[in-house]
Simulated assay, not measured.
Amino acid sequence: MATAIPPNQSLYIQGLDDHVHKIELRKSLYYLFSQYGSVMDVVALKTSKMRGQAFIVFHEIASATSAMRSLQGFPFYNRPLKITYAKSKSNAVKIKEGSYYGGKGNAAKSGAAPSAAAAMGPQKRPRDDNGGDDSEDGDEGSSKRARNGQGAEDIHPPGTTAPSSNQPNPPNRILFLTNLPSSTTPDMLTPLFDQYPGFKEIRLVPGKSGIAFVEYDTVESAGVARSVLDGFRVTSGNAMGVEYARV
């Protein structure tokens, strides 16, 4: 009988379309999962052992649990997600908790569990299909980013998650859009938002209609767009909500 995996901040994702470009996959995973809480890191490799798999690292166990329950079987790029807790904590979490000491030898001496990137098997430092070292994208890279105060922000606009309904989020460069028509495309929204200086991009979440993220170069530009476009009627039945994303 299989032993149940205890809850933790890291989720193990299977069933991904391995034809999606690595950076695009990471961004899309981030935008999808960050609706349920603050994401520390996204690990999605293109190595032979990790194709179709990824790890999502949240700040809080409750957020990971909520995401797993809500997105289990979700059609992501037309493939149902298979989500479980990772078998151990990621290095990003261990660094946050002060239990990561760097290096395989030191980690073993400290009694720390294996990292999330290695949670599903004994694979060593992952490598690309061409034999190049891809460790910067794996567990080693995750720990480097965490030590430098970085996380998933190196693959997407910094720290963006769906706003909390309890209180407004502080001003930042990323806006979170709600109540959009299900047929919305970036081309439909771009004319509304690129009239303000500093507009960078609009990103929808694959398989999740009604929401989007908009990024600007500065907080000031995002604030102007928010103040003008919050409540704008995209259609007669859709008054668009525009809030700051959670940071």
Rank of each mutant, 00 (worst) to 15 (best):
P186G: 10
P170C: 04
V247D: 13
L175W: 02
E24T: 15
L177A: 05
I83G: 02
A54V: 07
V57H: 09
P181H: 05
N130C: 12
S110C: 10
A119L: 01
R226W: 04
F55I: 14
L45Q: 11
I155N: 04
V57W: 01
A62V: 11
Q14P: 00
G121V: 07
Y77R: 05
M120I: 09
L177Q: 06
A54F: 11
N166I: 10
F232R: 11
V242M: 08
G241L: 07
L189W: 06
N8A: 08
N78E: 14
A152V: 15
F74S: 03
S227H: 12
F213G: 00
L180T: 04
M68S: 15
V219A: 05
I174C: 14
R147Y: 15
G198K: 03
V214T: 02
A212F: 06
S236P: 02
I61F: 05
Y100G: 02
R233L: 12
D17A: 07
N148F: 09
Y36P: 00
G198V: 04
Q72I: 08
D128G: 14
S88K: 05
I13E: 01
V219R: 10
G131I: 09
P171E: 10
I13K: 03
S38Q: 13
R125K: 13
R79G: 01
A118H: 14
L180H: 05
D217V: 10
V93N: 01
